[in-house]
Nucleic acid binder design. Structure first.
Lengths: 280, 280
DNA sequence: CATTTGATGTAATTTTACAACATTTAACAT
DNA sequence: ATGTTAAATGTTGTAAAATTACATCAAATG
């Protein structure tokens, strides 16, 4: 596990001086791995044992062990850390931070994905008579994107961002229909009701949402994505990106399942655009 | 650079005892990083200074520094690489690949971002009388998402995914209005026309698109994102994600520029949702 | 065969990390 | 407010670890 993330995660449990150590390390992790416990303590304005205690609190054997972990986190492969945007960050800083935390979130999401479920959902989708994508608020644009992907597959696809339309659409569901509901929290009341209606009419309901949420309980199947939401900004950010990547995966699985001839089809769909485009 | 490779590479230049050290480390690198110079020397049947000399020969500062390098080489050394999905990939493989290429694309995009432009666009947006987000096809859902972010800011925001509406909306533009046009290729004819109309009516047109594209030529300002599109799938995938992250950045810049009191506002917007949600 | 050069080990030195203890700070009840 | 307790932090000292300086040895060269 990435130590830098761990530092952020444990931040609440750290004491005042330990936080100073955390800040110093996060400010320049690269220099931290080349420092001795003494120099680091001096930089953070704390005593050496404090640094040591800090290391232990993060479940490492001591300072040298901590440096090893830190070095590994900094090595190629997991350089992306979720760092929160700060009040005084300039454009260069918040740009960097947002990119990096998005990548870090994707990394986490990747680890939390249950492949078996992905496979089963792809199965479902390929056999569906009709596929519906519904979401509300920020998740509406995710559903919108899903529409954009799946309509190319020559399957009946439905998308609404209007609850009333969603409910009506679900009333007309029949066995063989798949309804995909998107909601990060899974606590949006109207969407939970939509799930109930869809299931009552025989549709299979796939929830792209948090597990153990009210919405999850109403779904036939759950595609859970574990993403720490950036609540600082009061806006959904990373969660949405992870959902979109998940849709990419489902769409990819779909096309692979359909075989090479089907992909020829996709090419034709894309080629059709050419008429409305400037040449390269 | 990978130290393990370096050990093999330098093997010829090592002395007899140093080779013993090399063998011992290569035999079990994982244990080596947790050993002291003494234990390692004992295992290799050499003296401690020999181990130290061995470390120096590999251009490290000494034994601790060497351990750091070794640890980094051992940390899952697969940086995110854009690997294309293959015909015969199973769910686990394509899931992994899609996540990783998305992350790789974001990494590229991050490097290609021009901070100065970001800053200027944020400037523009904070001073705008009205902000419009337009896109077509896959980019429509990106614009949709932008609406979802910016309407929270208590600024007039407009979004349409219908060309006719977009054109009409642009006819009503005045000085001080900002129109953000989203298109990965920048070669969608109708959108280029929208740009022309908007500019003719005094709006500032920001293009989130490829530079040197027909659309870019009609824009007042370009937010270029370099993302290699995954053409295998005949679907926009990574490009769209990068655009969304860019919107997150703009939105974040916007809120930071507005100061802390403004962020209180955002909190209130979010709190309003509570009524339509199940409790936690 | 003497001499030099490089490799290796031994012993001393320095640096580093950590444990044990002392002091301060904060939190709480009285 | 005041004393009591527990947590946090710092101070001191020590053991371990790494590194240096130096001595010894082996091989190479003239």
């Amino acid at each position: 596990m990435n130590i830098l993330d761990k530092i952020s995660e444990y931040h609440g449990q750290l004491s005042k001086s330990e936080k100073k150590v955390a800040e110093t390390i996060l400010a320049n992790p690269q220099s931290a791995i080349h420092s001795s416990i003494a120099t680091l303590a001096r930089q953070a304005n704390v005593s050496e044992p404090t640094v040591n205690r800090f290391c232990r609190r993060l479940d490492t054997k001591g300072f040298p062990d901590f440096k090893l972990h830190l070095a590994q986190s900094l090595a190629n492969g997991t350089p992306y850390v979720s760092r929160h945007v700060d009040e005084n960050d300039g454009p260069d800083e918040y740009t960097k931070k947002i990119f990096e935390s998005t990548m870090a979130s994707l990394d986490l999401a990747r680890q939390s994905v249950d492949i078996t479920t992905v496979n089963r959902v792809v199965d479902l989708l390929t056999q569906a008579q009709k596929i519906s994508f519904f979401g509300l608020g920020a998740s509406a644009s995710v559903a919108h994107d899903a529409l954009n992907k799946f309509f190319r597959f020559n399957v009946p696809v439905v998308y609404f961002d209007d609850v009333v339309m969603q409910r009506m659409s679900c009333m007309n569901c029949t066995e063989g229909d798949v309804v995909v509901l998107i909601s990060h929290t899974g606590r949006t009341k109207p969407l939970v009701e939509v799930a109930q209606i869809a299931r009552a009419n025989g549709a299979t309901v796939v929830g792209m949402t948090a597990k153990d949420s009210p919405l999850a309980k109403e779904c036939s199947m759950i595609l859970a994505l574990e993403v720490p939401e950036d609540t600082d900004m009061y806006m959904p950010m990373s969660s949405r990106i992870a959902q979109l990547v998940m849709l990419d995966i489902l769409a990819t699985g779909f096309t692979l399942r359909r075989g090479p001839r089907f992909r020829e089809n996709l090419k034709r769909v894309k080629d059709t655009l050419r008429g409305s485009r400037f040449d390269k």
